[in-house]
Simulated assay, not measured.
Amino acid sequence: MRTVRFVALGDSLTEGVGDPVGDGWRGWAALLADGLAERGVGAEEADGTTKSTESLEAPTSVEFTNLAVSGAQTREVLEQQTPAALALRPDVVSVVIGVNDTLRCTFDIHAVAERLDTVYAAFTERGAVLLTACLPDPGVTLNLPGALARPLARRQRAVNTVVHALSERYGAVHLHAAEGAWLMDRAMWSADRLHPGERGHRQLALRFHALLAEAGLATGTAPSPEPEFPDPTTSASLLWLATAGTGWVARRCTDLLPQLLRLAADEMRHRARGTSARLDLRTAAAVSSALAALSVGEQRQPDIA
């Protein structure tokens, strides 16, 4: 029996926040893992435990390891998650990251590009199938006012442009998840409006599966778009926001809020002067510079052990 090793890297989106199962999270990557094999799946979590179902007809099995951690940025993926993933010798690896970088005062598109380039190269030179995705603007999903949303949108577009370019360069299976009518469907999102709910996670898994199946890399049944569990009640959603949700808000208030207010003030200043286009041009120039700084011809030699 051939075993396919699937390792997922990233932040809370890939960790599965918004799709609770038991005392933990499941998420799109675990749902996708179930569809990579024709029958029977072995799912190995980061703690080393393995869950499996077996079938005599199964030509393949899948070992799934989720290394994603809530709050992770590209730095954590490069320095912590990638070495751990390489040690597992994955056949398929997903690297979906970047939103947390845009929500920090330390945001630097040059650093994001360099880290992603190194991570992508590390896996593809070892023959792994690389899964990537561009992500929606958090300002829209959070329904922020324009002056607050526009700076975040600009940053997310910058990250997505880098991910697009590097995904093409390294031959990744790339999911365009930054736009689409389903993203505007409130039923797809959890109570915090930043993470998908079960329906949203299923959509991500379903769309990744379609891309992999088209490339002949997913032989199992596609994930169902229909939720397995009832939608959380309003009271349950409010309880989550009052407990786990407030922790996220508190952490971001010491980091994101001052930076976001500064960005909003800069945004309003430029709008009052009629020079908002300069902000877009400045970001576009930074993205072009970041990509130009990377090697153009041969793929980089990753500096990860």
Results as ranks from 00 to 15, higher is better:
residue 8 A to Y: 06
residue 167 S to M: 04
residue 116 L to D: 01
residue 10 G to L: 03
residue 190 S to Y: 12
residue 303 D to F: 09
residue 126 R to D: 04
residue 62 V to E: 01
residue 23 D to R: 14
residue 82 T to P: 10
residue 288 S to F: 04
residue 213 A to R: 14
residue 27 G to N: 12
residue 88 L to P: 09
residue 185 D to V: 04
residue 289 S to Q: 15
residue 189 W to M: 09
residue 196 P to F: 08
residue 166 L to R: 00
residue 78 L to Y: 14
residue 16 G to P: 02
residue 201 H to L: 12
residue 135 L to I: 06
residue 111 A to T: 15
residue 32 L to R: 05
residue 133 A to T: 02
residue 92 V to M: 00
residue 268 M to H: 06
residue 5 R to N: 14
residue 43 A to F: 03
residue 120 Y to G: 00
residue 102 T to E: 06
residue 71 G to A: 02
residue 192 D to Q: 02
residue 143 N to D: 02
residue 48 G to Q: 01
residue 263 L to Y: 08
residue 109 I to P: 07
residue 244 A to T: 09
residue 150 R to L: 12
residue 211 L to Y: 02
residue 66 N to P: 08
residue 58 A to E: 11
residue 270 H to I: 04
residue 249 V to F: 01
residue 209 H to T: 06
residue 160 N to L: 00
residue 93 V to P: 10
residue 129 V to Q: 03
residue 147 A to K: 04
residue 234 T to D: 14
residue 254 T to A: 04
residue 47 D to R: 12
residue 45 E to S: 10
residue 60 T to Q: 14
residue 233 T to K: 10
residue 249 V to N: 00
residue 166 L to I: 02
residue 58 A to W: 11
residue 38 E to N: 14
residue 264 A to S: 11
residue 42 G to N: 01
residue 282 R to A: 15
residue 131 L to I: 07
residue 95 V to Q: 06
residue 83 P to G: 14
residue 92 V to W: 03
residue 185 D to E: 13
residue 299 Q to S: 09
residue 304 I to Q: 15
residue 119 V to H: 13
residue 182 W to Q: 09
residue 162 V to N: 02
residue 236 A to I: 11
residue 139 G to V: 00
residue 198 E to C: 01
residue 29 A to T: 14
residue 56 L to M: 07
residue 167 S to H: 01
residue 236 A to V: 11
residue 197 G to Y: 13
residue 203 Q to I: 09
residue 39 R to P: 12
residue 21 V to H: 12
residue 253 C to A: 08
residue 173 V to R: 02
residue 241 L to H: 06
residue 68 A to Q: 09
residue 28 W to T: 11
residue 78 L to M: 14
residue 51 K to D: 05
residue 222 A to S: 10
residue 61 S to W: 13
residue 16 G to M: 07
residue 158 A to W: 07
residue 62 V to K: 00
residue 185 D to P: 08
residue 28 W to I: 09
residue 252 R to K: 02
residue 132 T to C: 07
residue 248 W to M: 02
residue 196 P to L: 07
residue 215 A to H: 09
residue 30 A to C: 13
residue 279 L to A: 14
residue 201 H to W: 09
residue 14 T to E: 08
residue 277 A to R: 11
residue 193 R to S: 06
residue 203 Q to N: 13
residue 217 L to I: 03
residue 298 E to G: 05
residue 227 P to C: 03
residue 180 G to D: 06
residue 268 M to K: 14
residue 221 T to V: 08
residue 254 T to F: 00
residue 298 E to N: 04
residue 135 L to E: 04
residue 28 W to G: 05
residue 300 R to M: 04
